[in-house]
């Protein structure tokens, strides 16, 4: 098992401990919630939980790649909005051919990522600024061209909607939601990319020290741009899955704050905002923790749902503090050993 984990997360030795820590926390929250409200472990709720975790997990994996480069992407939620509202609006309201719209839903976000990457690497603009402007622009554009109208598929595209709503029956009354399969495929692919290919190594290296990576002959600009393209591309895919699942999207708030959920999941999962470290497995567990916490507030602490953000904020802050203290203790121990 340990071997398997290390194959999956690569050589980042601190990642394994981090993953274990957050996994234990996830289990504790899970069990506490189940005890307080047995409905929590009901098949319906569990399926829903897995589905939401899968969709948010896709966002988290994307932003994790960007965070590993030492950057940030604040525009995810607006990309989710652009695709999530744009696709049903173009198909249902404007009558565009679905296959053209679906190709656009994949290509346009990647072009958005490309533009972010080029602005950041070629013009040397700061990722925070570039993607903050993205956050404003894509939502503004969506609200502008739809006139703030709610968009949905109605009764159309039932077949396509299955990839978000469908499930693979496991036993009577419970099935694995299909988005979970999509998440696993993406996670394995990105995990292999990050830990088994030279480009993944380049990404980790430049996130740690861009200048030294450049001096080692790595085309750092291209790698950073690639991370933004993948990130926005995955955000587009997630946006599509979200709207296929919900069948309804309002330009005002569709995907609102999703970038913050994604960043929080990545940080919980062990990505340092300084860049250079992060594991895909950690991000997925981080996402699951956030979803379970939210679920807990709704099911176990009725009347306190509105405090959800406060609880999530406190958990992340606590996790980061514990992590930092642990790191210092290790460094101190190490320095002490050296003296001898």
């Amino acid at each position: 098992m340990k071997q398997f984990i290390s194959k999956f997360i690569g050589s980042q030795s601190e990642g394994a401990k981090r993953i274990l820590g957050i996994f234990v926390l996830l289990m504790v929250v899970y069990i506490v919630t189940a005890i307080i409200n047995p409905n929590f472990v009901g098949a319906y709720n569990q399926e829903n939980l897995i589905r939401r975790t899968s969709l948010f997990g896709i966002l988290g994996i994307g932003v994790a790649l960007v965070i590993i480069t030492g950057g940030i992407d604040l525009s995810l939620g607006s990309v989710v909005c652009l695709v999530g509202v744009g696709v049903p609006w173009l198909i249902t309201d404007q009558g565009w051919a679905p296959w053209i719209v679906l190709i656009m839903a994949i290509v346009l976000p990647m072009l958005i990522g490309l533009s972010h990457g080029l602005l950041i690497t070629k013009l040397r603009l700061q990722p925070f600024i570039v993607t903050l402007c993205g956050l404003l622009i894509y939502r503004g554009v969506t609200r502008g061209f739809t006139g703030d109208q709610t968009a949905g598929f109605g009764n159309e595209l039932k077949g396509l909607r299955w990839i978000a709503t469908g499930e693979i029956p496991l036993f009577p009354g419970f099935g694995i939601p299909f988005p979970a399969i999509i998440l696993i495929v993406i996670a394995v692919a990105v995990g292999i990319f990050l830990n088994r290919t030279i480009y993944g190594r380049y990404l980790l290296a430049l996130g740690n020290n861009e200048e030294a990576a450049k001096f080692s002959g790595i085309n750092t600009d291209r790698m950073i741009t690639l991370a933004y393209v993948i990130c926005s591309g995955l955000a587009g895919l997630a946006g599509l899955l979200f709207v296929l699942d919900l069948n309804l999207a309002q330009p005002v708030d569709f995907g609102n704050f999703y970038e913050l959920y994604a960043i929080a999941a990545a940080v919980l999962g062990g990505c340092s905002l300084r860049g250079g470290s992060g594991t895909i497995l950690g991000v997925i567990i981080g996402t699951a923790l956030l979803r379970v916490l939210r679920n807990m507030m709704n099911m176990a602490f009725l009347g306190f749902q509105r405090a959800e953000f406060a609880v999530i904020g406190a958990v992340i802050l606590g996790g980061v503090i514990v992590d930092e203290l642990a790191k210092r203790a290790v460094a101190k121990k190490r320095a002490a050993q050296k003296q001898k």
Binding site: S11, N208, E211
Partner: peptide, 9 residues
């Protein structure tokens, strides 16, 4: 700054 990725092995 230029020669090493200090946090790598």
């Amino acid at each position: 700054q230029q020669g090493l990725i200090l946090d790598m092995t």
